[in-house]
Simulated assay, not measured.
Amino acid sequence: MQIAFIGTGSMGGLLIESFLRSGALQPKQITASSRTLSKVERLSARYPGLKTASSNVQAALHSDIIFLCVKPLDFQSVLSELKDVVTEEQIVVSITSPILLAHLESILPSKAAKIIPTITHSVLSGASLCMYGERIRPEDRLLLEQLFSSVGTPVPIPETQVRTASDISSCGPAFLAYILALWADAAESRSGLDRNTAIQLGAQMLLGTGRLLTEGGFTVEQLQQRVAVPGGVTAEGLQVLQEHLFQVFPELIKTTTRKHEHDLIKLDKLFENIEA
């Protein structure tokens, strides 16, 4: 199996390194292209056997799966290059949330999928959000999910739910890191607990909590009940969270959805130009 990565920026490079670290892919199976050639050359130097393509077309030509790891507004030029090159047997995978499967299928003759990764794949963890176009066969889906199982947990979802699901799986690490930083700042200012120690404690707590909810068999409700003894400190703390966080996450989802819808409007116009 040969795989092309078009775009080796933050997430493209992370996926390449994660697949290699997990052992799911060998360097000789990967061809990469990038607008900044030096990024690909650094990857090739770090992983001997990884092939550097001088163009996106060269990267795509003999690949079974083609990952498009570029920014939304760069899709116009990339798809214009690929539309007369890719074949019906190839699988093109977008990792960009606002790019719709309908967009890809309207331009390319290939099979199309959308898989939204997360930064936690770099430690072989986290959920990949998987969506499939109409041309994807069951064996194609199995192939993609086996690949992403090596770096985390593939979770099929309807494309209509991608924005809210991405808030949790992909944006979530940034949101939780922000909350943890605020918590650590408060701990330091109120009690003198060293901020770095507070962050270390919080990071270990997040790691353990995730394992309890995945491997430990707890539901979120059961975990709260187990820790929050009636009348105890945790119960008092939960009351504060109930009073102050009730509207935070609906507002967060409202804000990210509004931005997503704005991006979709711009991209619809972009894809009309490609088709024309």
Rank of each mutant, 00 (worst) to 15 (best):
V162A: 09
Q76N: 10
L264Y: 03
S169G: 07
V85L: 10
L223A: 07
V227M: 00
P158R: 01
K111E: 15
L73T: 14
L241I: 05
H262D: 14
V229H: 09
P72M: 04
K28D: 15
L144G: 07
I136P: 03
K71L: 11
Q200R: 11
S106K: 02
L193H: 00
T96D: 13
L124F: 06
S22F: 05
D74N: 04
V86L: 06
G172L: 10
Q204F: 05
L241R: 00
N196C: 14
T8N: 03
A32W: 01
V233E: 14
I119Q: 11
L129I: 02
G231W: 03
S54Q: 13
T36S: 14
E251H: 01
L68S: 08
D84K: 05
L15H: 01
I3T: 05
L104W: 04
K254A: 15
R137P: 14
I66T: 07
L207M: 12
K111L: 15
I107A: 14
L79R: 00
G9Y: 01
K28W: 14
V248G: 10
T36V: 13
Q200L: 15
L108K: 02
S34R: 02
L252T: 08
L201C: 12
R46I: 15
P158C: 11
S149M: 11
L104D: 13
L238P: 05
A174M: 05
T87Q: 08
T209I: 02
N56P: 05
I6N: 02
L245A: 11
L142D: 13
H121R: 04
E221K: 00
A165P: 01
F271P: 13
L270Y: 06
P48V: 02
M1D: 12
V229D: 13
P250C: 10
S54W: 11
E275K: 14
L101S: 10
L129V: 08
V248P: 10
T160R: 04
T118M: 08
L212F: 03
S34A: 13
T219Q: 04
P158Y: 09
L20H: 03
A24I: 14
S149T: 15
A198Y: 00
A112S: 12
G216I: 02
K83H: 06
S166L: 05
A53R: 01
L238F: 03
V85E: 12
G13S: 06
I3D: 12
